[in-house]
Design a protein around this nucleic acid. Sequence first.
DNA 1: ATCTCGATAGTCT
DNA 2: GACTATCGAGATC
Length: 224
Amino acid sequence: MSLPAIETPVPESYGPPLPLAFYLQDTLVVAQALLGCILIHASPEGLTAGRISETEAYRSDDPASHAFRGQTARNATMFGPPGHAYIYLTYGMHYCLNAVTAPEGVAEAVLLRAVEPLAGVELMRRRRGLSEMGANPNDEKARIRLGRALCGGPGKLCQAFGLDRTLNGCDLTVPARLWIASAGEKKPEEASRIVATPRIGITQAVDRLWRFTLRGDLYTSRSQ
DNA sequence: ATCTCGATAGTCT
DNA sequence: GACTATCGAGATC
């Protein structure tokens, strides 16, 4: 699946796209390593970007995974090559974005649940249908409130970024339309901030602590 | 702060 | 026909 690339300037600080090898690490490792990386969508309407703040891992041996009962038309992308976007509609009205992991044929993925908006906030606000929201950039509390309203949840994030089915299967390792950038070298102290909690909205395998956030990061779908 | 519920449509049994 | 990797509004504590 490939849509025409959108030529648009992207801040150097976002770093290069994460390479294929990144997505071939263990899915639990990928889910944690994606925290702090930058999700970027260059759309015809403009650029949106955000710092990934909440993820969930879905593995092949995992009753909560769409792919647990085998391949179907919906989950086919999960069985495809790693480093691609798996986007699906849930509850009849919300899209969810995943990064496919594991070698082709092994259906695993990481759900992106929340990001901190970095670029295209006005566009996000329009797409989310939010009008004026006291967005004084000097007020930290207000910034976090706005960030969570825009991108604090998997469905919100997809709406704010303008992601839908047409981007299902998009190659995330190529800076053309939708990709994930490294944000530069990881600070070693970041690893000590990772918090593992139960995944949200599932009824199977709730004992697996495969939802990941960074301690102190408030740009999440809920606290803790 | 935490809850309950309705919206809505595609997917799977 | 049941279920869903969600969200927002409204009620209640």
